[in-house]
Amino acid sequence: MAAMAPGGASNSEIYKGNAGKLLLPTWLVIGFFLLIPVALMAIYSFLTKEFRGGVIWEFSLTAYDQFFLNRGLFGDEPPSIEWTYIGIFWRSIWQAGLATVLCLLIGFPTAWFIATRAPRDRTIWLLIVTVPYWVNLLIRTVSMKFLIRDEGPLNALLLSTGIIDAPLGLINTNLAVQLGLFYSYLPFMVLPVYAAVERYDFALSEAAADLYASRWTILRLVILPVVKPGIIAGCILVFVPSLGAFLAPDLLGGAKSFMIGSLIEEQFKGAAGNWPFGAAAAMILMTIVMIVLLVYARSQTREAKA
């Protein structure tokens, strides 16, 4: 769902001068219920934590200090780099990245296959791929949990056919979280890639084939560069929500190792009750995502110019 650029084919001026009026509700609602809250969250990350939840309105860098610096269990050792939270972020980025690659490996061939069907069949295939996306994310995650648990149908099937002789022990592992993320966001990859492949001009492939390029060379040197925008859009749509995922680590990972989403959740809903720290972690997450999106936007404008 790459953002639709403004202007485009219909840069009409019928309502010229009315833009302010027409956009006022948008500014009010998103401004009030997203911009101001995020700004407030940014402020909270620089406040002092109140014991057991809440904040005291005093400026403090403690939240960021705690995130990046290790001062020992008792807070009086000389500071060194704190790897705990960087580690949590790194694991989340790694998990989200891996999910993105997996989605691409499965999603690209699927999108390609669908886009090369006859137009009538395409819609049917698209429908088949999108229906699961419309099913509640929670339901899908729970279904995955049910399927792969030690006493679940997957292990029962494999055990009864003798393929394995002990349960796979998938549940509550990082692999299970990975599977959950991949499963949750796979349709996000297929749709934008499909949109790009559908517009692909096969004359390019034919030209390459005339020059004796092999099938895979054409894929690598001709097709991939052309459909790249769709692939990048798909990657972002998988990567960003995976990065802040909460349900998959909580339900499939046994709430055992934090990912960014669960780390932040714990600060507000769990025992930690450290609001400024949770706000700081959320700020850092948002910064990472904004950097990814900015890089994407810049590459888009570069491509548009080229």
Partner: peptide, 17 residues
């Protein structure tokens, strides 16, 4: 008390990382 609880909180957070 608070000054002690923060250390238990630190242990807990450290555990759940």
């Amino acid at each position: 008390p608070e000054e002690i609880q923060v250390m238990y909180d630190a242990i807990w957070t450290n555990l759940k990382k």
